[in-house]
Design a protein around this nucleic acid. Structure first.
Lengths: 208, 208
DNA sequence: CGCCAAAGATGAACTCGGTTTGCTTTTGAA
DNA sequence: TTCAAAAGCAAACCGAGTTCATCTTTGGCG
């Protein structure tokens, strides 16, 4: 059922996203209007908004789409939630980006460009954080199976905050020019450090 | 130097804020336009925006104004950052709200109303979280004195996420109808639980 | 092939948050 | 009393996002 209609839609969607990303990267998120994007992509503004509900979504689409709650609730019996998450991030970390699996060089570059745009704009970074924030609630719900409500909420908050920080660090290094290989290598040890901190707590004896 | 001018300004500002809060509480944040608020408060829209930079700020002003970085960097020698924060929140917690010190019943009620408005609207809650997020960066800077950068960033993220969660829990209880005394009592033990979790980590043995 | 209903695209007008501009009123200090 | 600065204002403007009525494209079907 992949008729001409579907193909055209997919094509239009991609054209809009590409144009938007290019313009954002060239002149900054705020300096580009959606009217401009629509005109450049040769669609009406209303059409653009049928594909992407907001201007933000032009950039944020597909970012941080992991389902933490799912990872935790699908973990093998006997494994702690934290161990499951650690394993997940260690598995995806060393050779690829945690958010997506860009197969080719081009997709990688696009992802890095996108991250550059996001980190360049405080409102966008905040919105990206919000995406994870929503997962927090579901994660808390799953964790509440084994803990009281406040503990579950606290755990979920700490976990999502930690993951966000690690991802941010990783992407900032990439945007700052580190090679993907280098950043990937450091990501592995970063994940370990982050989860150790989560598991063992903030040791007061080190805090002078 | 508290001339007529200053008094009038303060008065206008308060009138705007009160009108806004009342309308928001009556009909919800989204259903009230700033034009309406301005008209009801009998000022021009442009005047309203001279007092409050955004619609959000009509509600969020004065919320979460604590300076975490300050608390940490001003701690007595030999005390860990976490201990300083714990002490601070334990001190303010039992008998009053962490964000402000409403002296009279009226101010308390206004605060609760405001929190009700905030928690009623996802975008507003998110914005409130953003306020704390900004403190995160400064807290990380201070913590970086004693830790490497990633560790400091992770600690700051976990700490702010934790504090936000505790505050949210507290206010949700209030909005849900708990008496201030009850909520305050539970807040004390909540703070202890939260900081214990931060210090000791998420114990995997409890995570089934 | 030709027909038609449904899906999709469109431009124009609209709402709302926020800003700019150019002007009048109010205030406080000399 | 005078006058510059501060404050207020109406109206026009901007950009994101929506509504609506209209027009085009597609694909299924006889």
């Amino acid at each position: 059922m992949t008729g001409l209609r579907e193909r055209k839609k997919e094509q239009t969607r991609r054209r809009i996203a590409e144009v938007a990303l290019r313009l954002f990267a060239e002149r900054g998120y705020d300096a580009v209007t959606v009217n401009e994007i629509a005109a450049t992509a040769e669609v009406a503004k209303v059409t653009l908004f049928k594909y992407f509900p907001t201007k933000e979504s032009l950039v944020l689409e597909g970012v941080a789409e992991e389902d933490l709650a799912q990872i935790v609730s699908a973990r093998p019996a006997g494994q702690s939630p934290l161990a499951a998450l650690r394993a997940h991030y260690l598995a995806t970390a060393p050779d690829d980006c945690p958010d997506e699996e860009p197969r080719d060089e081009q997709a990688r570059e696009a992802l890095i460009t996108r991250m550059g745009v996001i980190f360049d704009n405080p409102a966008l970074s905040a919105a990206a954080g919000e995406l994870l924030h929503r997962q927090r609630q579901e994660l808390a719900r799953v964790l509440a199976h084994d803990h009281d409500e406040l503990t579950a909420a606290l755990m979920a908050a700490q976990i999502t905050a930690t993951i966000l920080t690690v991802q941010e660090t990783f992407y900032r290094r990439l945007v700052a020019g580190a090679s993907l290989a280098d950043a990937g290598l450091r990501l592995g040890s970063d994940v370990r450090l982050a989860f150790d901190l989560l598991e063992n707590g903030i040791d007061p004896s080190k805090g002078r």
